[in-house]
Nucleic acid binder design. Structure first.
Lengths: 190, 190
DNA sequence: TCAGACCCTGTCCGATCGGTCAGTTTGCCA
DNA sequence: TGGCAAACTGACCGATCGGACAGGGTCTGA
């Protein structure tokens, strides 16, 4: 693994565990066995390093959540969406962890703000006052709860997987489908 | 409101919104219209200010989650527990928001670590490998999802309440009861 | 009137932060 | 072997942080 890739990996782990602000370039350099100057050679600034660390995950997140926008989530697509969503959570656990924990406080970082804007729209979806409060809250609890639970498990250094990855995936999809069952098809992000 | 109470209120809001590390004593002082020295007069240190800001909420959190420990959550008590849990979330939204977002990264702060230890035990509950992975994940999604959803709604400055407070409370309890319905009574934290 | 508690302030300090810059090492290719 | 570009480094900078400290108002009770 090149120094650049190693720095990216270390930075992601540290940002997710200790926080972006609480992680100094000095510490990242030490963990990688290089100097702080070397970090700034590969990444022009701390913010660039953050962008490199979580940018790809946020791109993917936007793709996964895209179907929720506009016309809404059709009944037939729901299973496909949940599968894509759960796969995304499991594949990018560190990045999701970091975004969940620190997204709200890193509002001035473009790459974070891009994801924040998306979450803000989704949050508006289940927070706006309307007739079907329950449906919206079911949606929020399903998506937010799944993400938060996986991150909490990871953050606190508990056993890497609650069951095998495949079992986790299947159970998670089952629960989310169950939770969203009472939600009518075309309500999403109307 | 006394200066001390005002500082506590401002600190809580800022810590929750921008993060503990990202909030300087200088900024808190400015928002309160006093000097930084005055802040340090009322609270011996930044950490003491944090303790004053969220300590009471964490005490309450321990009380609310206490029934989950030991013998487990009996069937008859579940509704009472969910009511207490939801009431806690709604009453201490700012504090819960801050704890969810920054608890994992503030491991060296005693008042935070006290709550982290509790969450760590709860997380272990639904992450440990066992026969009833689904039940444990249902539990984690219910508790974590409800907390995270409310925090997200608040963090992003959306309408203060998704519906009236009473309606939110009732709907939330309904959804969580529904989600936990398949969970047998005595599995919790065995 | 005055002593003391309380509240508040400006000034200063060491530490640490992200970032700049000039210079050195390393590896590859002609 | 010589040269050049990429990789890397130590020294240094301004800014900001949490905190220490001495002192100045203000009020109250003796």
């Amino acid at each position: 693994m090149s120094t650049q890739e190693e720095l990216r990996t270390i930075a992601l782990a540290e940002f997710a565990a200790a926080g972006y602000g609480a992680t100094s370039l000095q510490r990242i350099a030490e963990l990688a066995g290089v100097s702080k100057s070397s970090v700034l050679y590969h990444f022009a600034s701390k913010e660039h390093l953050l962008e490199a660390a979580i940018g790809p995950a946020i791109d993917r997140m936007q793709d996964v959540l895209a179907p929720l926008e506009g016309a809404g989530l059709l009944e037939g697509d729901r299973t496909a969406f949940l599968e894509a969503f759960v796969d995304f959570l499991l594949q990018y656990r560190l990045e999701v962890n970091m975004f969940i924990n620190q997204g709200p406080s890193l509002v001035d970082v473009p790459v974070i703000e891009r994801a924040n804007a998306l979450v803000r729209r989704l949050a508006g979806f289940f927070s706006a006052n309307s007739d079907s409060l329950e449906e919206k809250m079911r949606f929020g609890i399903a998506l937010g709860g799944a993400a938060y639970m996986l991150c909490t498990v990871q953050t606190f250094g508990l056993p890497e997987e609650p069951g095998t990855l495949d079992e986790t995936r299947a159970v998670l999809i089952t629960i989310l489908s169950d939770l969203l069952a009472p939600v009518s098809a075309t309500t999403a992000l109307g």
